[in-house]
Amino acid sequence: MIAIIKYNAGNIASVKNAVERLGYECAITDNPDELRSAEKVIFPGVGEAGTAMKYLTEHGLDTLFKSLTQPVLGICLGLQLMCRHSEEGNTDCLGIFDTDVKRFPPKDIVPHTGWNNLSDVRTPLFDGFENDDTVYFVHSYYAEISPQTIAKCGYILPFGAAMQKDNFYATQFHPEKSAAVGERILKNFLELKI
């Protein structure tokens, strides 16, 4: 079973729909036992960092999250919450990735909205990714590039489009909204062996 972490973030249903389209059973849950025993855990997120972290902390989900040992995939705000700190609401985050989240300088349209290319993609998450493939982004904050960056994107400046540390994976873009390219990335994650 694939577990999607239930918390106060918007449009979790679209992640569930995407996982089910790939033929996997999937549940949205905040039950600690279900989360610990799931084959894979997905941590989606659309919303505001401070509000989301507060909810996770109050519900003990922060400690639980860090203790997960199966493959975990953060999406969008999920990636940002897995970093050390976010400028959004001056929020201390989960600290899984050794990098910080900053707001895009207003040198171009913010949020970064739409389809963009990736570079320096690494396996296994990006197996099969072609040079001119694009994925869908919508975000105003970005994670700085670090040794844990496994895909880069450029908009206003280069930033981390995907990250990995041990069993923890994350994408700033929305694989569930990135048509066939996103489906393959999600499939690569769902097929990971522990």
Binding site: A13, S14, N17, A18, R21, V138, S178, A179
Partner: peptide, 8 residues
């Protein structure tokens, strides 16, 4: 639509 469509 949300069940079937994989773009925004």
């Amino acid at each position: 639509i949300a069940k079937e469509i994989n773009i925004p």
